[in-house]
Write a protein that binds this DNA or RNA. Structure first.
Length: 1103
RNA sequence: GCGGGAAUGGCGGAAUGGUAGACGCGCUGGUCUCAAACACCAGUAACUUCACGGUUGUGCGGGUUCGAGUCCCGCUUCCCGCACCA
């Protein structure tokens, strides 16, 4: 029987499906193991060969753990809300669900082909209402909680309100907005509901608020910081501007410290942890206030990490947007300041980032009073001070900070040295902390370590400021003015948001007529009819009342008269199954809302949630995907706990991976999940890049004046119709002519193409411009279907853009077609493309056969000297827009899924990025064929025998078991494949077809190449799946040799080898080694100072 | 500028401080064949030698060690992330 993956693979995939081999139960006595892939956004482009890399790694791990006796949860789903589907909807008018469903179907098809062991019964889709019901539910829990600094965890907002009623907020240590006023218990109780709720919003984890946000006009939506790269939107690359808007926010800053600490307990790549630390950007320093001369009562608060440089302060700088700018500007300076503020405001982020070296600013005319010396220092504004960080104001120390130094130089402000270390402040600032302080009042003569605590103490004792920790992390903007996302489960009344009743979840996306913002600029949900919330009992009663206008009674009267409350309770207590061991109580809930009639309803929120909402908790839904009563049952959570290994790309470092940790910490505080961190181990798979192909077009001018007039025309005139291929060189260009006079193929090679030839990416745009681009595949088509191709070429060449270079694509690199061809077309004579001149046998030129049996005579082809194409490809991110996508389907069709899986693993370490290349896949294909060949004789007959294996055979097997086991454990899949190859080669040379050796090998191979393993397992006579076999254990005894081959070094240099029995004593070994010819020869009588035997390893003679 | 990572044949890449280059691709030669392809066998770091062998060699310069690709110190280059964060 011959190995033919196309025969066996679909058969077993079908069998696994009908057997439900991959279905996982939540009830098992086995230890659990949860291995998770980052779920994909199902884009219209489908999967490319880069996507499955991580899925294959996790699949191998999942299958391996299963063979080792674990109950393995290995699910997959789709992050199916998102912009592309919506853009498609805007363009076509179809509901985004349509595109989403279609894309998911395509993804599923492709994923299935690879033989991945996902339990599809647990699939989740973030855009399913049964799923986003729980996204909304978590949103509601966030709204109902605040962060308590004393408890160091999230607590119900009702408890906070209760404490306000007892002690006011001065004593309460809770995370809130800086602008929150201080009030006493009496003041709190005197506030009306509206005022109280407004205060509470400053504490809630999710809250609407005015803030500077990244507004993207092209997308018509705000974006979070991590969705903006280099001043443009990550998706689409549209410009982004800063704009003050009212948005829902997520108070992630409350967890800044917890998120930092948590990094220490998880096994994630250093780069990811570092990126997160960076993003959170904790810096410890002090905040202090400067009084302003001639403005009693006005203070400027600044933050500094270098309070030790306080005596070097010679001016103060405010951000142009700072709220005090207008007040502090003197009449004399007003014109200048206003002009500057306007100029700075008009600058986009891109511009600001582009010239950070340019020093700009303006003087307000006012002076601040130095808090330690009382000296007057000028107050400037400048856009190097950011409004969004710290207080938007800095104390400028030109001697210690380069930006302040630059500014001082530009505006002729004094620079005062403050350290006695040799400072050359004429050239640059000195940011070091070396030496002792001078010109520094109370800290003169002290070093840095002593000065800082002293100054902070002084600040705090004199009420000038305090030690403070500042973060770069901003609260995350949580609303998007888009359609295709989770509706925010809140409605508005009197300018305040209210949550809808939990019973009304999910709040389903309404139908709209168009997916665009309204004419007045409101989000698409404003187009929905009746996008208004009425609590359900009221909805019914009200509609009844509406239906019977004769019944002249209001809802309120009805409630009073019947005694039946048809309103939902104003605050719903949260039922919590606590994993943290202590119960959160909601007893004090009555403290708010007392004597207050909740609003009957109101217009629902028009914005939707951002893409990261649904992906911040999906790993729990897989544990219990059908549950309609909870996002996940406590039982399921207790069993599966958290993700053991999480696999995905590094591009989510500060987005998804940080938000998920935030939500998880929150859910943990509520006792809803058992672990602080949701993923113990994270592995980033490297990106597989694409090779982008470019076509070259001769510039028309070049063709007319140079190529044609000076090269081609004289050539034709001299030679007449060309019968044979010829070459000619001219000014650094080589032209190889291959065809007759009228239809001509010219290969042009040159290393100095650029100025005469333009490079064009092979894109839709290029095609639209009717540029003729032929791939080698199309050339092959041209032979098979000359009419079709001729028509295409004719159409293209009818235009003036008639001359093109044609380039092969990486997909066809096995075909020896040279890299660039230039066609000229004469309409009258053109009938057929004579590519066959270059090819040996036309009949064999279809792709399928060309793959298995290349039939070319290489000598007929132009191949570049290095055997590589020298021009015109670049390694880039693989992407549909770059026209460099390689499809896994094609690979699977050509070589089979097992081969594709193993080849992807064989490419190199999982975490490395690498360009995709198919060269080398034949090595893996050959291995599979050889492995298969161990089971069959030359005639294809089953050859497995029950003979007892020899020591060599057992050693080959057990070496393989040992290495593969160790390598899987450390995620070194590429060396696993090597080990299989080595073992197979050895067994082949030993002619081993023994069951005792091959059977364990099949199990070993099963995680990597499940199809061939299942087939051979079946042929070995097994009735149950190889997925449930037992992982073989290696036996050290089989690895032992009777002799050891020691390498012998003399003075650290390898000189030879010596074979000694395992049990030979060291003294005898030395005697034997010294007698060796190569030893005496190299030593030449030199005295041996030391004789080192590292048992089992090496011998080193020191002379 | 700051932070993280990397640098090994023609290529992808292997090497708990212990024979550098496993495994594969590519290339060269051979067997088979009318001839090719497939397959199989052998070779393949560089320099040197008829050969045995010798010398050099893991980005560069030092160091620790009997022994360094691996550890330490100082650089260079490249990739990734952040970037006027006070």
């Amino acid at each position: 029987m011959e190995y033919n993956p196309q025969d066996i693979e679909p058969k077993w995939r079908q069998w696994w499906q009908t057997q439900q081999t991959y279905k996982v139960s939540n009830h098992s006595t086995k230890p659990k193991y949860y291995i998770l892939d980052m779920f994909p956004y199902p884009s219209g482009a489908g999967l490319h060969v880069g996507h499955p890399l991580g899925y294959i790694v996790s699949d191998i791990l999942a299958r391996y753990k299963r063979l080792r006796g674990f109950n393995v949860l290995h699910p997959m789903g789709y992050d199916s809300f998102g912009l592309p589907a919506e853009q498609y909807a805007i363009q076509t008018g179809n509901h985004p669900q349509v595109a989403t469903d279609r894309n998911i179907a395509r993804y599923r098809e492709q994923l299935d082909e690879i033989g991945l062991s996902f339990d599809w019964s647990r699939e989740v889709r973030t855009s399913d209402s049964a799923y986003y019901k729980w996204t909304q539910w978590i949103f509601m829990r966030l709204y109902e909680h605040y962060y308590d600094r004393d408890a160091n965890k999230a607590l119900p907002i009702a408890q906070l309100a209760a404490r306000f009623a007892q002690v006011g907020n001065a004593e309460v240590h809770a995370v809130c907005e800086d602008s929150t006023p201080v009030f006493s218990a009496a003041e709190w109780l005197a506030m009306d509901h509206l005022a109280q709720q407004t205060i509470l919003l400053k504490y809630r984890f999710t809250y609407p608020g005015e803030a500077y946000v990244n507004w993207c006009p092209a997308l018509g939506s705000v974006l979070s910081n991590d969705e903006v790269k280099d001043g443009v939107s990550e998706r689409g690359g549209h410009p982004v501007e800063r704009k003050m808007m009212n948005q829902w926010n997520m108070r992630i800053t409350a967890y800044a410290d917890r998120l930092l600490e948590g990094l220490n307990e998880i096994d994630w790549p250093d780069s990811i942890k570092e990126q997160q630390r960076n993003w959170i950007g904790r810096s410890v320093g002090a905040s202090l206030r400067f009084d302003v001369a001639a403005h009693p009562g006005t203070q400027i608060e600044v933050f500094t990490t270098r309070i030790d440089t306080i005596y070097g302060v010679t001016f103060v700088v405010l951000a142009p947007e700072h709220e005090l700018v207008a007040q502090l500007t003197t009449e004399a300076q007003r014109t200048e300041i206003e002009a500057y503020v306007q100029w700075a405001g008009a600058r986009s982020d891109v511009e600001r980032m582009a010239d950070t070296k340019k020093v700009t600013g303006a003087f307000t005319g006012s002076y601040a009073l130095h808090p330690f010396t009382g000296e007057q220092v000028p107050i400037h504004i400048a856009d190097y001070v950011l409004a969004g960080y710290g207080t938007g104001a800095v104390m400028a120390v030109p001697s210690g900070d380069q930006r302040d130094w630059d500014f001082a130089k530009r505006f002729n402000l004094p620079i005062v040295p403050i350290l006695d270390a040799q400072q050359n402040l004429d050239e640059a600032a000195d940011p070091t902390k070396e030496g002792r302080y001078i010109n520094s009042g109370m800290i003169n003569g002290l070093p840095y370590a002593e000065a800082t605590p002293l100054l902070i103490k002084h600040l705090e004792e004199n009420g000038l400021g305090k030690g403070k920790t500042q973060y770069k992390l901003r609260d995350a903007v949580f609303s998007r003015q888009r359609y295709w996302g989770e509706p925010v489960p809140a409605y508005w009344h009197d300018g305040l948001p209210y949550l809808i009743d939990e019973q009304d979840l999910p709040l389903v996306l309404p139908a709209v007529d168009k997916y665009l913002p309204t004419e007045t600029g409101e989000p698409p949900l404003a187009r929905a009819k009746d996008w208004t919330y009425l609590p359900p009992a009221r909805t019914i009663v009200k509609s009844m009342l509406d239906h019977f206008p004769d019944v002249n009674v209001s809802l309120q009267e009805l409630e009073e008269n019947t005694g039946i409350s048809i309103s939902p309770p104003p605050f719903k207590s949260v039922q919590i199954e606590s994993f943290a061991g202590e119960e959160n109580t909601n007893e004090e809930a009555s403290a708010i809302g007392q004597g207050y009639e909740p609003p009957l309803g109101g217009p629902l929120e028009l914005s939707t949630m951002p893409g990261w909402a649904g992906s911040s908790w999906y790993f729990y839904r897989y544990m219990d995907p059908e549950n309609d009563d909870a996002f996940c049952s406590p039982e399921a959570l207790r069993y599966w706990q958290a993700v053991d290994v999480y696999l995905g790309g590094a591009e989510h470092a500060v987005g998804h991976l940080l938000y998920s940790r935030f939500w998880n910490h929150f859910l943990y505080d509520l006792g809803l999940v058992p672990e602080r961190e949701f993923a113990k181990k994270l592995i980033n798979q490297g990106m597989i890049q694409g090779r982008s192909s470019f076509v070259f077009r001769a510039k028309e001018q070049f063709f007319e004046q140079y190529l044609w007039q000076r090269v081609l025309q004289p050539f034709f005139e001299a030679e007449g119709p060309i019968a044979q291929a010829q070459s000619r060189s001219e000014e650094g260009y080589n032209y190889d002519f291959a065809f007759g006079a009228n239809d001509l193929v010219i290969e042009v090679t040159s290393y100095k193409l650029p100025e005469k030839i333009e490079r064009i990416r092979r894109t839709a745009e290029a095609d639209r411009k009717r540029l003729l681009v032929l791939t080698t595949e199309e050339i092959i088509d041209a032979i098979n279907e000359p009419e079709k191709t001729a028509a295409k070429i004719r159409a293209a060449l009818d235009s003036r853009e008639s001359f093109y270079f044609i380039r092969d694509t990486p997909r066809c690199e096995q075909l020896y077609v040279s890299q660039s061809l230039l066609y000229k077309y004469e309409p009258d004579a053109f009938t057929k493309l004579h590519v066959d001149v270059n090819l040996v046998d036309n009949d064999l030129l279809n792709v399928e056969q060309a793959r298995t049996k290349p039939q070319f005579d290489k000598s007929n082809f132009k191949i570049d000297p290095q055997g590589q194409f020298t021009t015109s490809f670049e390694v880039e991110k693989m992407s549909k827009s770059k026209y460099n996508v390689v499809n896994p389907d094609d690979m699977v069709r050509m070589y089979g899924a097992d081969c594709f899986r193993m080849y992807e693993m064989f490419l190199g370490p999982v975490e490395n990025s690498k360009p995709w290349s198919t060269s080398g896949i034949t090595g893996v294909a050959g291995f599979l064929r050889k492995f298969w060949g161990l089971f069959f004789d030359k005639n294809g007959q089953w050859a497995v025998s029950s003979t007892a294996p020899t020591g060599d055979e057992l050693r080959a097997l057990h070496t393989c078991i040992k290495r593969v086991t160790e390598d899987i454990e450390r995620f070194s899949m590429n060396t696993c494949v090597s080990n299989f190859m080595t073992c197979t080669n050895e067994l082949r040379s030993l002619n081993c077809s023994k069951r005792a050796v091959l059977e364990p090998l099949v199990v070993l191979l099963a995680p990597f190449a499940p199809h061939i393993a299942e087939e051979l397992w079946d042929q070995l006579g097994k009735t149950s799946t190889v997925c449930d076999a037992e992982w073989p254990v290696y036996d050290e005894a089989h690895l032992q040799l009777s002799t050891i081959n020691y390498p012998v070094q003399i003075n650290g240099k390898m000189r030879g080898n010596i074979e000694v029995p395992v049990d030979m004593p060291a003294g005898d070994i030395q005697e034997k080694v010294m007698a060796q010819e190569f030893v005496t020869r190299t030593l030449q009588g030199a005295e041996v100072k030391k004789f080192i035997v590292v048992p089992g390893r090496i011998i080193n003679i020191v002379a």
